[in-house]
Amino acid sequence: MSTHDHDRTDARFVGMADLAEPPSVAVVVDVMRAYTVAAWAFARGAEKIVLAGSLDEALALTARRPDRVALKDGAPAPGFGAVNSPGLLRSADLRGRTVVQKTTAGTVGALAVREASLVLCTGFVVAEATARVLRCRGDDTVTYVVTGEEGRAEEDLACAQYIARRAAGAETDAAPYLRRAAESRAARELAAGIRRGAHPDDVALCLELDRFPFAMVASLEDSLMVLRPYDTAPPLGVGGAAGGR
């Protein structure tokens, strides 16, 4: 499906199965919890995040590398120093470390669009920073990849639609979008303790709008898909410019 939120921007919302060809600009959305966790990892000092294609690859990339920590969905497991929970990660000391992340949906979505010219990974915690990057670029078409529940995750779609409106420059009340996310299946399952490797604060942390000032850009580095923070705050006295971090 697609919607024209702005005269010059075609915002397309697709599941991973609907990616017939690499998009030019891709915004990969995983609110609960991969890209909320990624943002927290950067906030806790991580230098970069390698998005792994499998659990075995994550373990291989961290073997005998004390500067790297492997992170996955679910309960803790041998070889994995972290789990995919913002509530559990927010107290970690990741200064100078590389996180190798493998999740069920979020990392898969980024790898699926690795040929795109720009890949932004996002959730509500970095929504405005993501929208700012898109506003500065002014691309004709932006593809939003809804990673959860085979493209039907309400929290991811709500976040994608909110960012698309902000990217188009529309004044937008975030409350209805956050409400949709709070009432989503993922939120209910997390709140009920159905998902392993979770913290009671995870849902609330995933719904903290614009908690962090940076966007997150993924790109290929030596055949690996690497996620890094991207500072979108303009320098003092300068408006509208985005600079790398």
Rank of each mutant, 00 (worst) to 15 (best):
A242G: 14
L209H: 10
A105M: 05
A26L: 04
A204T: 08
W40G: 01
R44T: 04
Y230M: 07
S2R: 14
A192V: 00
R135F: 01
L118W: 08
K72I: 03
L118D: 10
R196D: 14
A167K: 02
R211E: 12
K48S: 15
A46E: 10
R90I: 03
V83I: 15
G79I: 04
L157R: 15
V133Y: 07
A116D: 10
A191E: 14
T98Y: 06
E115I: 01
T232I: 09
A82F: 07
L19E: 09
E21N: 07
L220K: 05
G106M: 05
G197A: 08
L178D: 10
A110K: 01
I163K: 11
L209E: 13
Y230N: 01
A192P: 04
G169N: 10
R90P: 00
T141N: 02
M1K: 10
A160I: 07
A116Y: 11
A192N: 13
L227S: 06
V126P: 03
T232F: 06
L157F: 08
L55A: 13
H199L: 01
A164F: 11
L71P: 12
G15Y: 13
G15K: 08
E115C: 02
V145N: 09
H4G: 03
R228P: 03
R12C: 10
R188G: 00
F124Q: 03
E155A: 01
E47S: 15
G15F: 11
V25G: 01
T98H: 04
A75C: 00
V126K: 12
T232E: 12
L111N: 15
R64T: 03
